[in-house]
Structures are given as structure tokens and as C-alpha cells.
Design a protein around this nucleic acid. Structure first.
Lengths: 219, 219
DNA sequence: CTCCGTTCGTTGAAAATTCAACATACATTT
DNA sequence: AAATGTATGTTGAATTTTCAACGAACGGAG
């Protein structure tokens, strides 16, 4: 577990908590370490929602597959980020989404009940963690709002441009790399892959952007 | 302010807090009461996001209007619910959405900074409120996920049926009343109003549902 | 009662998406 | 070097949505 301390102490979940307190806290919280191979499932839709996941290395996606087999990519999880914390904190019975490793992953699982219920050893930290969790959860809400704003555009072009301009804003640069290939981007934007490719070509011809694979530049 | 105590003590924000403590707390939190007429704006897009709103009476909607004038209804706010808490808690600069009164409203505004920063008088309550806020924020995230799941369907019929079956599930009944007229439902589902009306007619002819105005029944 | 404004349903044409199929490019393996 | 597999781009037909316009139903105001 100690190998991930450099990740943990940078995580907003442990903001305001000293590194020397990490080890007893993790024990108190019943933290479990898990490894997942690229492509494997970290959480599956329908599982009980009790664990908060903290991605220590690798990358993952929040997905949903409907009964027709259509995949939706709800969001991406980068190293150092939490996932599934909303479901665990809200006390829902079962996960409405799946979490899939897009790279080999190392994950720390925290039982949400151990965070939200005070314990005898490290109570002082619990309050800080709950506050940290509040801030993280609120920021995740914003990301959901942002995705909703993107998806709410009616056309492929509208969705694509909304996504790309948001990426450019967040990276503070007109050049950026997106974390998706074409199929994944289509699954994130809720559009047809071939139509998305066609729209990218059109935007390229119109001189609005250039791209190579996942590297984009807005002109 | 006292006239709203019956609402306040039922609000999840004040769960675990005694009614006799409400009055000093509201003072400590710098609560402000506001009245809004039906159709007026409670918060406008671009305003600084410092206040958490608590709707004491009436009803409101979370909306966004894009540069073309297209309205998106992100969610509805019912009496007793919080709104804008994610934006305030996440510490974003400006609101990315507007809140509009769909009925005459009474609202209590709470400065988020006064909740998340401990104060000298009622510190014991602050921790409870932060925990309550965490739970509320997480539950709001779930609602955003639910809307995303609805919007993610590609066709008008798919979106409509996803919405209606969710409503039926939440009301635990095949008969229910939705909080939207046709235009508002279209703005929530991100579809064309006339196309939505046509789809409802078709579903009616197919014997899948019956409806009168906003009263629906799934068969 | 009539007028008026709003909501809702209907329709047909225009526009956009989806779908299926195939071509191309590139990297990896044998 | 050839074969294979994956990702991406292209195309045309089918489907669906959007858009604009209009008519019917309804309720409130005068």
C-alpha cells in the first residue's frame, strides 16, 4: 500500500491530512488494494454500491451498456481520481454503471460506511474526509453537467464542437489530446461513429480544425 | 423565517438537527429569505456561485439557454429541495445554469462559505450539515446520471419511454403526473416538441400508454 | 358569449442521423 | 514480405428528426 502514498497524498480525498497519518487511516478505513488488467471490469452494473474507488495507476471509464448492446461512456477516470463515490455516498442499493479498466490499473477500495461513520481511532480525520468528499462529489456533479451540456446539442457537429471547445478551455490551449479513439468518442457523444468521422472530415476541410488520431487542434 | 420551520426541519439539509436549534443556526449561517414571482429568475447563468438555495414553497426549474435561444431543462426543483448546492460547494466561479421559478416561490439563500467554514457559535452543527450536504450532493449526482441515461437514447421514442418508465418506477405506479407540459418535456428530453407530440400519439395508438395533458398511464 | 392567447396534435418537406458495407492506412505477427 | 487485425474514412440508402405552418381544443378575460 505504501507504494501509492505519493498518489494518495496528492488526492483531494486526503487534502489537509498529513502523510504520516495515511497508514493508520487506511487501516482504520479498511482499505483494500486491487489490480486489474486492461479491459477487465472493476465494478459491474448491478453490484452493491458500497466501495469508493481510488485509481492509483492506469486509466478507466465509467460505462453503461443497454439491452441492445449500445455502450455509453459516461466519463473517464484518470490516475489519482475517485470513482463511484456518488453512488456509495448516496446510499443507492446497486450500481447503475460499470467501471472498466482501459489500462492496467491499481485501485484502492474504501468502504464508504467506514468513512461516513465515525470510528474510535481517527475521528479527527473523518470530518476532514467528509468535507473533502463533499467537494469532490460537487465537482463530479459539475462534470456531469458539462457532459449533459455537450450531449444536449442536437447535431453531431454541435456535440463535437461543444466537446472540443470544452477540452480546449480545460487544457488552456487550442492543441490537446483527447482520451478517446473514434468509437469511444462516438460513445461519449452519443452519435454514430461513421457520422462522427464524416463530421470531423468536414470540419477539417472547412479549416476549423486539424487532427491526427486523438491529437486535435482548433484553428 | 419561522413560518418555514416546518419545511426546514423536513429538509435533508437539517437532518439530525433539533428544531430549537434552527433559529440560531439560520442567523449564524446568514440565511436570507427571498420571494420570486412565477416566471422570474432566481439565479441567472453567469452569476457568482456562492449561494445554496432552499426552496420553501413553489416550484422551479434548472435551465440553460444556448446562444441560439434553445432552452434545456436540466431538472425540476420541488418544494423542500436544495438547488445550486453543487456549484457553490465545488467552488466554481460562475453558475453555468439558470434557476427559474415555475410557480410563485419562497426561497432561503445560504452562503456556502458559512457552511463549509467552521464558525464560533454552532460548530457542532456545521459538521452535521456538511455530512448532510454530502449525501444530498451525491443524490443529485444520481439524478444527473438518470437524466444522462434518458438523454443518451438516440430516438424520441427511446427518450420518452426511458423517461416515462423511470417516472413509473419512482412513483411505484403505472399512473403518474409529470411536472412538464409538452414543450417543457421536449426541452427536458432534448427533442422537437411536435415530434414528441407525434410520438405520444403513436404510442397511444399502439396501446402502450394513455394520457391526458400531464397525466400518463403505462399499459 | 365572443375574443384571444396558449397548448397540443397533425402534416409534409427539408435536413440530419443511422446503418451497412467497403476502402484505406497502419501496426503487428508469422 | 505477406498476412492479419484494428482503427479510421467514405459513401449511399433508409430512417428519423427537425422545422414551419396550420387547425382544433381549452380556458380566461372582457
Amino acid at each position: 500500500m505504501e507504494q501509492y502514498f505519493s498518489i494518495l497524498k496528492q488526492s483531494p480525498l486526503f487534502a489537509g491530512i498529513e502523510e504520516r497519518d495515511l497508514s493508520p487511516m487506511l487501516g482504520c478505513l479498511g482499505a483494500k488494494e486491487r489490480q486489474y488488467k486492461k479491459g477487465s471490469s472493476i465494478f459491474s452494473e448491478g453490484e452493491p454500491a458500497v466501495y469508493i474507488g481510488l485509481l492509483c495507476s492506469g486509466a478507466a471509464q465509467i460505462e453503461r451498456i443497454d439491452y441492445n448492446g449500445n455502450r455509453t461512456i459516461v466519463s473517464v477516470v484518470d490516475s489519482g481520481e475517485l470513482f463511484a463515490e456518488s453512488f456509495a455516498c448516496a446510499g443507492v442499493e446497486r450500481l447503475p454503471i460499470s467501471v472498466t479498466a482501459t489500462e492496467d490499473c491499481a485501485v484502492i477500495l474504501l468502504d464508504c460506511r467506514r468513512i461516513t461513520q465515525a470510528c474510535c481511532n481517527a475521528c479527527a480525520f473523518h470530518q476532514q474526509m467528509i468535507y473533502n468528499l463533499l467537494k469532490i462529489t460537487a465537482q463530479k456533479s459539475i462534470r456531469l453537467h458539462q457532459r449533459a451540456e455537450i450531449i444536449s446539442h442536437r447535431t453531431t457537429r454541435g456535440k463535437l464542437m461543444a466537446y472540443l471547445t470544452l477540452q480546449a478551455t480545460q487544457k488552456s490551449s487550442t492543441k490537446f489530446t483527447i482520451p478517446f479513439d473514434r468509437q469511444e468518442l462516438a460513445d461519449y457523444l452519443e452519435v454514430d461513429r461513421s457520422g462522427l468521422s464524416a463530421e470531423i472530415s468536414k470540419l477539417r476541410k472547412e479549416g476549423i480544425l486539424t487532427c491526427r488520431k486523438s491529437d486535435f487542434e482548433l484553428l
